[in-house]
Amino acid sequence: MKLPLQIVAGQILISASIRSAKYRMFGRVDFYVDTGSPVTFISQSDAFRLHVPVTSLPQLGHTKIGGSTYELRRIREIELLFKTEEEKLERITLPEFSVLIGTKKAVEEIQEANSIPSLLGTDFLTINKLALYFNPSKGEAYLEKE
């Protein structure tokens, strides 16, 4: 089973439908696939867009991006659906997800936190046994399940 990826300005993008009965959430998230990130997370701006109640989520820890520290919060009971090469839906999950939120309150720092995209990291690839194929010179990219 292959999940086609989009190459946008040299970066690898995959869109997923995201839903959760618990958080009354339905929408989409456009993740950048980042093999340099061990953590998959939904960005602050995507969480806002999807009305995720971030302040009530339990804290998972902290992470550093570009010299700034961000908080990770835990979100559970969400489902991601991806479109396969055969135009079917593939349900792929993690037991829990992280939501990234900024820790600083200054306007510029909130804007900086909002500019960070959602990332699909190596934890997601490992747990779901997904291999990444990326050939930028041919414009080909996909995830393949073992």
Partner: peptide, 17 residues
Amino acid sequence: NVLRLLGSAEKDAKWLD
């Protein structure tokens, strides 16, 4: 509905690139 949403996402990514 989900396929429609993801189809729209595909178009958006292509347009952005």
